[in-house]
Design a protein around this nucleic acid. Structure first.
Lengths: 198, 198
DNA sequence: CTCCTGGTGCTAGCAGTGCTAGGTACGAGA
DNA sequence: TCTCGTACCTAGCACTGCTAGCACCAGGAG
């Protein structure tokens, strides 16, 4: 193999790699958009393939299966959510206000993007959390919670308190979305919870 | 139609009605047992039919579709859970102890029967809650929560406080089951929550 | 006792699901 | 220009929830 050919070969390889990665992102984006538009039931491999303008089996050269695609959407969602949580939290100096802002951002995220939230927290994707091998996106999101809860933890163990606070928000988000709570009282519920944790 | 024939006709009708109802219960029980043994993914109409020893279309003469079966399982679960909550709550005179007992019973129920809990609270069954036309089983379960939270509500609106407390427990139950929380800290989380709501 | 009839439950099938095997056709390298 | 590897598509499998249409048998009429 000549040097020039070798170089060109590598660059071609790289270009292909780039295009592949690009197509992978396209698939994940299409899955997320389809889920947000019509719910996860509408996300079938066939519709997904049609959307990215490739045949169905191409999906399986990028992801091991449909679950892996949902998982990728979820991880992307964590990165997205972490940004919003951080922005909300760091916009206030008072710990109580910061906590409130973070909580509101969290509930808003869940309410505005229910399908994404479902992929992240409700669906049975094996994204274990507490362990060390959790994807960094998950730990970063949890870190935002720790940073907001910590300053107000008092004598409580910070991590436990964070888990409890986060669980309380998660419960409100999911039960509200499932119409299990009285509509129109979201603000009151959040206020009451913050009153107990500030 | 002679009087005797009429009477016998009615009784035959009644016997058939009884047998039908019995078979309906059999289907719901089979669905619940199968889900608890192998998860809801394993509950297919074919396996269900095989289990009750009838052909598949028979299910559709009892329930409008698979969702209706899951819904029936959920309603049965609410009745079951309500009993356990009531037993736990009424076993203690002190409001704080009663609330603790109810909360523990709730979390235990969710942990011991995750499939049933999933049908009741996680799956997208359109069992609206807050409205008037909610099945009485749902309102009874919520009533147990109100009865336990009420005496400790202080200045808070009882219903709002109940929703917040229940949501917090629900969040812990689901996130714990989904491995999103550190294992082995269930008791600590419950204690911390109760400390904030007693 | 015999015939008819209505309803119950069956077999077979449809459209759609996730996923895979096989072949084709095109572009890179000699 | 020819060959070869690989990237992709068509076709198909086993399964899902659900439905149409037929067979059979219990119950009532004569």
């Amino acid at each position: 193999m000549s040097s020039a050919a070798s170089i060109r070969g590598v660059s071609i390889q790289e270009r292909r790699e780039r295009e592949r990665a690009e197509r992978g992102r396209l698939i994940v984006d299409a899955a997320r958009e389809l889920a947000e538009a019509e719910g996860w039931d509408a996300v079938t491999t066939r519709r997904l393939a049609e959307r990215v303008e490739y045949s169905q089996p191409v999906l399986y050269s990028h992801f091991k299966g449909k679950d892996a695609i949902v998982r990728a959407v979820a991880v992307q969602g964590f990165a997205d959510m972490t940004e919003r949580l951080r922005a909300a939290r760091t916009a206030h100096r008072s710990p109580a206000r910061a906590l409130r802002a973070l909580a509101m951002a969290y509930l808003d995220f869940a309410a505005e993007r229910p399908a994404l939230y479902e992929a992240m927290f409700v669906r049975e994707v094996d994204l274990s959390f507490g362990t060390a091998e959790s994807p960094p996106e998950l730990r970063a999101a949890f870190g935002e919670f720790v940073a907001a809860v910590g300053p107000l933890a008092g004598d409580d163990d910070v991590e436990t308190r964070t888990e409890v606070f986060w669980s309380a928000l998660h419960g409100q988000a999911t039960l509200d979305h499932g119409r299990r709570l009285r509509p129109g009282h979201r603000r009151a519920r959040l206020d009451l919870l913050l009153g107990r944790f500030s």
